[in-house]
Write a protein that binds this DNA or RNA. Structure first.
Lengths: 340, 340
DNA sequence: CAGCCTCCTGTAATCGATTACATCAGCGTC
DNA sequence: GACGCTGATGTAATCGATTACAGGAGGCTG
């Protein structure tokens, strides 16, 4: 808590001017070798740490990027953020992470307060008037919102849903239920649209249960599914969590996966491969998404050119594990399942 | 990207001095009512946002707290961080989240760069020389390290392990295996020590498998367990993730839980109650931990008094679900299990 | 009406680092 | 030796907000 060391203290200790210290630290090449050594020694001796506020104020450039995520609770974001940190770190930029739902005021202060040069936005549900008003370069990642009129990057969610349907169709399933995500979410819409397309293309009639991304939503969907007289033989859920909830509840109700119902998730979270049964799911290359978004933002920042417009879409990849299997022509009832 | 609005612009628009604008924004009570209205209108009209760097530099107080977590990948931290954000927000403090493993340099800049007033540290494995050198108030949360000589808050990990052992003991288990966490981790040590204590107190001999916190570690432990000739009938794992991995692998090897082995986890993550079987585990009150730590830090910051020393320990709470059951006197072998 | 107090507002110094510009030493060239 | 050039360093203005201090208007008291 002692008074902080200022650049002037280092300068005094090294017997040079503050300008020289500053130059030694930011562009070592232009100071004499001997001077540089003396300054470095003084820095070490005094334990000097640059004052970020002063530097940012003068430079008018905080050299940081801000990551806004709607819910840090979501395991999903962690790896993305790690990748962003990686790219940013290489470029000498700091990374700040903030909850995009922390309240408008706090958010505006973070964004407009001059603490960041650019933003990676993982939330598509903020007020468009607010987002459009931001004066910093922003890139949307994973989620998006056309009303923001911003560039973005995501996997091709609709195509992913089509791949899922085709996998199930190829296994012989004709009655496929989609447990859709929250109705207000863009990802839900895209996945649902892709599902409907693919079903139509195969001449099948889509069945949809309005669900959510959570375990609870999946469990509820399992009950709804179990109550259908002529039950669909396959389910495509809006997220892995939802699939976990669905499958767990199925077992509790006496059904088995994939024997009684095949299930495909979405995201390929860490746990998906270890679940019982290991979950067939759409893989989201989280490290790649984070890296690519960060690279695009960083290069725009460094070159001073604005970010291009439009969305980059990464083609989907289905990871086939054991929660899906061929549709058995002879269907068993739940009662039979229980007996085994 | 247009030139940012400065306080002088607002002052000009409102026909007052910059001092008045500043006062209107920070202590509205001391400016005249009419003036205040004019200033507020000008602020709205110009879209003025305070420049954080300038304010911080002048105030010598960023009004922010920094949360350092070793791995944002861990779902575990999310709820803690949300609680911290809540408390901090009420006190008018911003919250910054950073990866404590992002690299020494970046870390030092975050910590010593004057961007934060205080720190919540969720990592006990940083270099003590570095941490001890920090000039800000720091409170350790969940993990801790005696070498830091800092105050902290955590659940009573040793007591928790004792509770787990006693629960299993009361169910009639006498052969209990502990799948310990990473050897270098404090939590692992405390839980292991509590395990050994409780076993000794019951006159049982502790069996320990050196594992880890991950799903993979749990799966590996399941193999090790299966290879023991006279298998323990109960397992206490170092984390829920580890328990999930253990149980999943058990099923894959043909064993059932809790029929063939009772399992207790640690943390009570969101998924624990939805797992198959629902997991008996030690509950960590994450919101409470976050809130309490933040409150202690914030009140120290506001009053200017240093944080007290010493650790606060929260008593453990065991959530009993279905992964534990009474030890069946007549043990079945894996072969028999497979047949059923 | 002088004197004083209160309430509000303006002036200007200040926080700490950066950097344009000035300065100076040393060297080579004509 | 005068001149110009290069490379290293110092001087001082600057970024934008805060706030100590000064000042002025208006009201109240004696």
């Amino acid at each position: 808590m002692s008074t902080r060391v200022r650049i002037a203290d280092v300068a005094a200790a090294a017997g040079v001017s503050t300008a020289t210290v500053s130059r030694t630290l930011s562009s070592p090449g232009i100071v004499g070798e001997e001077t540089r050594a003396r300054v470095m020694a003084a820095v070490a001796a005094t334990g000097y740490r640059i004052n970020a506020a002063a530097r940012d104020l003068r430079r008018q450039q905080p050299r940081a990027i801000l990551v806004l995520a709607p819910n840090l609770a979501n395991t999903f974001f962690s790896r993305i953020i790690a990748a962003i940190q990686d790219v940013a770190g290489q470029a000498g930029l700091a990374v700040q992470i903030s909850d995009s739902r922390a309240g408008t005021d706090m958010l505006e202060t973070m964004v407009q307060g001059g603490r960041a040069d650019g933003i990676v936005l993982l939330d598509g549900a903020l007020r468009p008037e607010m987002v459009r008003n931001w004066k910093l370069p922003v890139i949307q990642l994973c989620e998006w919102n056309d009303d923001y009129a911003l560039p973005g990057l995501q996997i091709d969610n609709a195509a992913a849903a089509r791949v899922a349907v085709n996998h199930l169709g190829d296994l012989g399933h004709t009655r496929i239920l989609h447990v859709a995500g929250p109705s207000e979410n863009v990802l839900s819409h895209a996945r649902r649209a892709g599902f409907e397309d693919a079903m139509a293309a195969r001449g099948l009639s889509p069945e949809i249960h309005q669900g959510g991304f959570t375990i609870e939503a999946g469990a509820a969907a399992a009950h709804a599914w179990a109550n259908i007289a002529d039950r669909p033989t396959a389910v495509f859920t809006a997220s892995d969590e939802c699939a976990f909830g669905f499958i767990s509840e199925c077992y509790r109700l006496g059904f088995k996966v994939p024997r009684d119902v095949s299930v495909i998730g979405f995201d390929d979270v860490d746990f998906a491969g270890h679940f019982l049964p290991p979950l067939t799911t759409i893989h989201q290359p989280r490290a790649r998404l984070g890296r690519q978004a960060a690279e695009r933002l960083v290069s725009a920042l460094q070159s001073g050119t604005p970010l291009g417009a439009g969305y980059d879409q990464i083609p989907p990849h289905l990871v086939i594990r054991s929660s899906t299997s061929a549709c058995s022509a002879s269907k068993r009832t739940a009662e039979q399942s229980l007996r085994t």
